[in-house]
C-alpha cells in the first residue's frame, strides 16, 4: 500500500517535471541566447555554452546594454504602464457589471444580449481598425491614450463578460436572495457580495487582460502611431530592428525586458488562486 503510494507519487512528479521541462526549454534557450554575442548565435547552438558554463567570456551584456540604453526607453515604459493599467481596469470593471446583470437578473432579451456578446468574441480585431479610426479622427482622439483605452475595453469585453458570467452563474442564487431579503440594494449585493466572492476570477482576468494589452503591438501602432511620445514598449522595441531584419538578435534581450512587468503581475496575483476562498465564503 505504502509502496504503491510512493511509486504513484514519483510517477506524478515525473509527469509534471517533464511538462515543465518542455515548457521551459525554449524560453531558457532564448534567455541564454540573449547573453551571447551575435556572431556566436548564428554559428552554434545555445546549449553549447553548457559545456563549460563557467566560462564567462562567452557571455555578453551588450544586447541588454543596447536595448536598455537606446533613447526613450523610460518614456516607452511609462506609456506602456498608462496604456496597460487603464486598458485592464476599464474592461474588467465594465465586464463585471455586465456579467453580473446577465447572470443574476432576469430580464427580457437577456439571452439575446448574452448571445451577442459571446458572438462578438470572434470578430477579428483587424477589421475594426479602419471604421474606428475614421470616427477617432472626427472626434480628435486618434493618437491619444483615451482612444486606445476605449478600443482595448471594447476588444477585451466579450471574453471578460463570457468568463465572469460563467463565474457568477455558479454562485448560488439563495445567497443573493438572502441578502436582498435583508434589505440590500442591487448595488450592495454586487459590491459587497458578488465582487469579493469573485476575486479569484477577477485576478485571473486582470492577469490575462494586462498581458494582452502590455504585449500588444498592432493595436497600439494603429491607434497611436509610431510617434515616440506616445509609443509603448512593444512599438519602441520593434524599431530596434532594421527594415531587412538587421540586429534581430536584440529582440532576444528585448523579449525579457518586456516580460518582467507581466510576470510581476502574475506572481503578485497568484496568491488569490488558493483553495477555499470561494468554498468558505459561499458556505458561510
Amino acid at each position: 500500500m505504502n509502496l504503491r503510494k510512493t511509486s504513484s507519487r514519483i510517477f506524478l512528479n515525473i509527469i509534471i517535471l517533464l511538462f515543465m521541462l518542455i515548457w521551459v526549454l525554449p524560453t531558457l534557450g532564448l534567455l541564454i541566447t540573449s547573453f551571447r554575442p551575435e556572431e556566436a548565435v548564428s554559428n552554434s547552438g545555445w546549449w553549447t555554452v553548457l559545456n563549460n558554463p563557467l566560462k564567462f567570456t562567452q557571455f555578453t551584456l551588450e544586447n541588454y546594454k543596447q536595448v536598455l540604453g537606446s533613447a526613450g526607453m523610460d518614456t516607452a515604459f511609462r506609456n506602456s504602464f498608462f496604456i496597460a493599467i487603464m486598458g485592464t481596469l476599464l474592461p474588467v470593471m465594465a465586464a463585471a457589471f455586465a456579467a453580473f446583470s446577465l447572470a443574476k437578473i432576469e430580464f427580457k432579451g437577456r439571452g439575446l444580449a448574452y448571445a451577442l456578446i459571446v458572438g462578438l468574441l470572434v470578430v477579428p480585431l483587424q477589421l475594426t481598425f479602419i471604421p474606428i479610426l475614421k470616427i477617432f479622427n472626427i472626434l480628435g482622439i486618434a493618437g491619444t491614450f483615451p482612444g486606445l483605452w476605449l478600443v482595448h475595453t471594447g476588444y477585451g469585453l466579450p471574453f471578460a463578460v463570457f468568463m465572469l458570467h460563467n463565474f457568477f452563474v455558479s454562485l448560488p442564487d439563495d445567497l443573493f436572495e438572502a441578502a436582498y431579503i435583508d434589505g440590500a440594494s442591487m448595488w450592495t449585493v454586487f459590491y459587497r457580495l458578488a465582487l469579493p466572492l469573485s476575486i479569484p476570477a477577477l485576478a485571473s482576468l486582470i492577469i490575462f487582460q494586462f498581458l494582452w494589452v502590455w504585449n500588444d503591438l498592432l493595436v497600439a501602432l494603429i491607434y497611436l502611431g509610431g510617434n515616440r511620445s506616445v509609443a509603448p514598449l512593444t512599438v519602441r522595441l520593434s524599431s530596434l530592428v532594421g527594415s531587412y531584419g538587421q540586429d534581430w538578435h536584440l529582440l532576444t534581450a528585448a523579449a525579457f525586458v518586456s516580460m518582467i512587468v507581466p510576470l510581476i503581475i502574475f506572481f503578485s496575483l497568484q496568491r488569490y488562486f488558493v483553495r477555499g476562498i470561494l468554498a468558505g465564503s459561499v458556505k458561510g
Binding site: 481598425f129 479602419i130 477617432f136 479622427n137 501602432l221 509610431g226 524599431s239
Partner: peptide, 21 residues
C-alpha cells in the same frame, strides 16, 4: 520631423489613408 516606423508599413498606411489622416 516626426518619424513613425513600422515594418508593417502596408497595414499602418492602409489604415491611416482609409481613416483620412
Amino acid at each position: 520631423v516626426q518619424f513613425e516606423g513600422t515594418r508593417d508599413l502596408p497595414t499602418l498606411l492602409t489604415t491611416r489613408l482609409q481613416a483620412g489622416n
